[in-house]
Amino acid sequence: MSQEATCSAASSSIANETVGQVVDRGPISLGRILTNRWFLHTVSIVAFFWLWDWLARSNVLGAGSSVLARPHEVLEQLAVLTREELAELTLWGHVWASTQRVVIGFSIAAAIAVPLGLFMALNRYVNAIVKPLFDLLKPMPPISWISISILWFGIGETSKVFIIVLGTFVPCLLNAYNGVRLVEPELYDVVRMLGGKRRDEILHVCFPASFPAIFAGLQISLSIAWTCVLAAELVSARSGMGYIIVQGMNLSQPAMVIGGMAVIAAAAWGTTLLVTALERKLCPWKRKIVGL
């Protein structure tokens, strides 16, 4: 068997493994258009905004404009916020204030929880000491810590970062821990057969194998971080998107409230995309997992 022949056989077997999506291009009919995915998406979004607008104009939800703002009013409000300062900050300043808290809290938690989780999975004694404490504190929602953190740190930055650290710590640690524990045990045998020591098993199997799980944990943590920062800002803050929302509530301006919600959704969405991109970069081996 010549080298070229083996190669081509090999590449054809790759082709066999790739399952192509077959697109059925039949004649265009009314039923086809009505069940087309993009058509339905468009219908859905248009209906959503129309319904929102209708609810805001009519008095179904209660008395007039102080209950719900129309979509374009929200946009106008956001435009105003980018120009005019609210508590000495423009919209971007508030976005930055919240993002900064999330990034700091999230980074601190990840930097401590991920190594600790790995360590717990690798050493039974560390696990025996840390796990029960962790189980004790785990069922308390991070938001329930807001009050005590205000008692401890006042209403400044520290207390908000503290809440975020607490909230994101749990999923980071749990996922790192489970990531190591669910590694295919025969991979350790491979390293040992190739002449590796315990150190190599950890370096070449435990760490890379737990990467996808760690990233899943980071994603969960991130959405928790946004919830936490928002809750903390709602309770007490002078800046941040939660502050915008609270101001909107106090001033009875639903446009400001909904604007704040929209911005925080966008920010949360953006950071999620960022972590996903980072994961793609760091774990190119990971197969695509189809999901929502």
Binding site: L230, A231, L234, M261
Partner: peptide, 12 residues
């Protein structure tokens, strides 16, 4: 992507 907490003012 909207944290449920953000809905609190509207809910009120």
């Amino acid at each position: 992507p909207i944290p449920p907490v953000a809905w609190i003012p509207l809910t009120i």
